[in-house]
C-alpha cells in the first residue's frame, strides 16, 4: 500500500500573535511543530505500513524552506520519503490555492491512501484535506478516529458529535485524521540520524508541478479569499453567578435568563 501523508508545520502555541500591520502570523521566536492532527495521521500511516507488508509512507508538506525540519521529524518517526512543496509563487495561498498546489504535487506521486489532518491549529479551517480530495476526484472520509484494512478496502470510523459512522471506502481515497486517531510515537535516535543521512526530502518547486496545476489556482493570486482583518480575541466578560436561593429557584432563574435571550 502506498500511503501519502500531508503535514503542515505550525507554530507551537495556542497564543498565535499577529503582526498588526500585515495581519499575518509572527513566526519568529515561536517554536514550530507538526500540526497535531497531521502527526496523528503520520502515526496512523506508520501503523498501516506495519500491518500491510510492502507499504511505503511518503510525507509531503507545503511551506517555506524551514518546513524541511517537520518533514525530517516525520522521516525520523519512520516515514520513507519526504517532499517539500516550496516556491515563492505558492506564497499567500488560501485553502483553495493550497489544496490545488498540494493536489498538483500529489498527481506526480503514486498513492492508494492520502491522509491529512482534520485541521491545523493555526488556521482551523478543516478545508484543505476535503478540497484535495475534490480536486483529485477521490472519495474522502473526514474526522477519522480509526482506520482498518480489509482487502483492498479501508474501514474507517468517522466521528460525529453524537454518533459514529463506520465507513467502507475503496482505494485510492483520502482520509482526514483526528488527533485521537493515533498517539504519535517519538522519533528514534537512529531515525533522526537516518532522516538526514539516509533519507531524502525532495523539493517540488513550481517547475516540478507546472504541468499539473493551473497557474490561476496558486499563490496569492489564485486565492479566492482574502483575510480582511485579523485580531486577537478579547476575553469574554465575566459570567453571571446565581448564588442565592434553593436549587429550584436557581434553575428557574437560569431558565428565565435563557428565555430572555431567546436561547430556549
Amino acid at each position: 500500500m502506498k500511503i501519502v501523508v500531508c503535514i503542515k508545520q505550525v507554530p507551537d502555541t495556542t497564543e498565535v500573535r499577529l503582526d498588526p500591520k500585515t495581519n499575518t502570523l509572527i513566526r519568529d521566536g515561536v517554536p514550530s511543530i507538526i500540526n497535531p492532527d497531521d502527526k496523528a495521521g503520520v502515526e496512523a500511516a506508520l501503523q498501516l505500513k506495519e500491518k500491510v507488508e510492502g507499504s511505503t509512507v511518503t510525507v509531503i508538506s507545503m511551506g517555506p524552506p524551514q518546513a524541511d525540519v517537520a518533514l525530517r521529524e516525520a522521516l525520523a518517526m519512520g516515514c520513507d520519503e519526504g517532499i517539500l512543496v516550496s516556491d515563492r509563487a505558492f506564497g499567500g495561498a488560501d485553502t483553495w490555492a493550497t489544496s490545488h498546489t498540494i493536489a498538483a504535487a500529489l498527481k506526480k506521486l503514486e498513492y492508494d491512501v492520502i491522509i491529512t489532518g482534520r485541521q491545523a491549529i493555526d488556521g482551523d479551517t478543516a478545508q484543505v484535506g476535503p478540497q484535495i480530495a475534490e480536486t483529485l476526484g477521490l472519495p474522502q472520509v473526514s474526522y477519522a478516529e480509526a482506520i482498518d484494512v480489509e482487502g483492498d478496502k479501508l474501514i474507517v470510523t468517522r466521528q460525529y458529535e453524537d454518533r459514529k459512522h463506520i465507513i467502507e471506502v475503496a482505494t485510492p481515497c483520502l482520509i482526514t485524521a483526528l488527533s485521537e486517531l493515533a498517539e504519535p510515537r517519538y522519533m528514534s535516535v537512529r531515525g533522526i540520524m537516518d532522516s538526514y543521512r539516509e533519507k531524502e526530502v525532495k523539493l517540488f518547486t513550481l517547475e516540478e508541478i507546472k504541468d499539473t496545476v493551473d497557474m490561476s489556482d496558486i499563490g496569492l493570486k489564485g486565492s479566492c479569499t482574502r483575510v480582511k482583518q485579523s485580531f486577537t480575541k478579547q476575553a469574554k466578560g465575566a459570567g453571571e453567578k446565581i448564588v442565592d436561593g434553593s436549587v429550584d429557584e436557581k434553575v428557574a432563574a437560569i431558565i428565565a435568563k435563557l428565555q430572555e435571550k431567546y436561547i430556549i
Binding site: 517519538y186 522519533m187 528514534s188 535516535v189 537512529r190 531515525g191 533522526i192 540520524m193 537516518d194 543521512r197
Partner: peptide
C-alpha cells in the same frame, strides 16, 4: 530502549543508533 537511547554513540553496524558522543 525502544527509542534507541541505550546505544546512542554506537554504529548502526553493531546495532547502535549511529549518533555521536555529543548527541
Amino acid at each position: 530502549q525502544k527509542y534507541g537511547m541505550f546505544g546512542i554513540p554506537y554504529a548502526k553496524e553493531i546495532g547502535g543508533s549511529g549518533a555521536d558522543v555529543l548527541t
